[in-house]
Design a protein around this nucleic acid. Sequence first.
DNA 1: AATTGTATTCTACAAATGTAGAAGCATTGA
DNA 2: TCAATGCTTCTACATTTGTAGAATACAATT
Lengths: 123, 123
Amino acid sequence: MSLPKSEEQLMQYLWQTGPSFMKDLIDAYPDPKPASTTIATLLKRLQDKGAIGFKKYGNVREYHPILKKEEYFSKHFNGVIKNFFNDSVSQFASFFASDKNLTDAQLDELQKIVEAQINQRKK
Amino acid sequence: MSLPKSEEQLMQYLWQTGPSFMKDLIDAYPDPKPASTTIATLLKRLQDKGAIGFKKYGNVREYHPILKKEEYFSKHFNGVIKNFFNDSVSQFASFFASDKNLTDAQLDELQKIVEAQINQRKK
DNA sequence: AATTGTATTCTACAAATGTAGAAGCATTGA
DNA sequence: TCAATGCTTCTACATTTGTAGAATACAATT
């Protein structure tokens, strides 16, 4: 399932802050905030797609993600890698590691993470 | 510049195989191939956006990318990371490294790449 | 109970995207 | 020369996405 940007953005809020009420979502938007009905529409569409659900507390709904962030991202991401790097993870990794946007410190951190992961798998 | 999927796909062909004639592009599409006019439309739109250019050989055009793959991907990609991982590279790397889609061999390779990159920067 | 504030649904519409037919033009092969 | 072929542009239209007004529903408050 690939979500349009506006819906994806809304999912971000839900993923980051967890179950939320409409007003929280509105608060989360930066100025200039969209009309509340706009957000309501997005919520509706996401419900229709089964990406979110809600729990009723009295008459207010607390929305929560059903679609998992990791799951969504993983699919998304694998598609991107496949497209851009011919499905070659190492080609991608190479690109990523040499990205100017990575600071030296981040690169070191990346190294640690990879090592940790390798060790963990050995077990 | 963010391209719609269909245009992005076309760019992939150009990025991968380099300057190409229309017929090559058509060949590159898997069955069921879209109508040639569909591809022509995409080429036109990409020209209008300045993402591709062409050279005339006689009366046929050889299309080539102007927008660089790395440049495009970098922007695209940073946006995605920013959204999903709160702009935290290490959070992303961690997710990436632990992804089940990475084989052990690929992980080893990643380690080498990171090391090589670190060494290179030391120079 | 009437008022007010807020959430929800319905409806609408503009812009972007995906897809392709029709027509025109140039080249090539009969 | 003329028909067939292939490319380009123009036009068109359905679908999806972004955005929001209008109407409605509910619930807390006065």
